[in-house]
Amino acid sequence: MANESANEREAGGGRRWSSGRWTTVAIVAVVLGCALTTLDFLWAFLRAPMVSGANLSDGQAAIINGTVVSTRLLFSQKIFYFHVPVAIVSFCFIIAAAVYAVMFLARRRESYDLRSRLCMLVGLVFIVATMISGDLWTRHDWGVWWVWEPRLTTYFILMLLVIAYFILRAAVEDPETQARFAAVFAIVAAIDAPISFFITRLVPSSIHPVVIRTDSGLPPDMLVPFLAGIFGMALVGFGFFRLRLTLEEQAMEVESLKRSYEELLD
């Protein structure tokens, strides 16, 4: 690659110090993220109010804490507090992968390709987590494990695109060609992320609700766990990305040591 010398410099002593510092930051981010998501879960499970579901039979009503309730209260909606944050983080990573891919195509630096690949990898982990949590919600509320409605379909396509990205990388041997093809594919795949996000607005008949709205007016008991979930999952994702990057740097060190050893043998 055009920046081989820059990468070599990056692989030197300066990087090692910064790598150690980043590892500490990553671990702190993951621990903090775990704490926030635990708070999210406990708050959601124990404190967040339940939302209204179907009307009670025969038009009956009950008075709970001075409020007239004429609908069933949906407990399963509490999945929202961690399913949506995980989905948002997955979108962010796919978009970040595309941004790094654009940067790679513009500057041809190997480090951008590496970061793009890792964003895709962490994005895939969060996509799988979103799919599983969403499936449980779908099973309880809609009575089926899967339904081909617009949000689920576009998100499923996104997952397939991310998997295809790794298949493409594995199929191309030449590192430079692989990075170039993968960068273009990452950008194409990322187009599906905003489509999937906005599809509930674009297709009003979708049974998937529009979650992020300016008029949602979430009360503090719902907003606090939701925000804790978003920040917690974002921190966990960031921590994973940095830890994985450290691993890749270690792998680069192995390659560098192998080269040194081979030079000694010659």
């Binding site: 339940m50 209260l73 407990f75 999945i79 982990v125 987590a129 599983i132 949590s133 449980l136 309880h140």
Partner: peptide, 24 residues
């Protein structure tokens, strides 16, 4: 009837949170 979804929904809520962490 108002609270009829609580017991049936709780395992799904716990399961979703647990499975997210299993994946991670």
């Amino acid at each position: 009837e108002v609270y009829s979804t609580v017991l049936s929904g709780a395992p799904y809520v716990i399961g979703a949170y647990a499975l997210i962490w299993v994946v991670l």
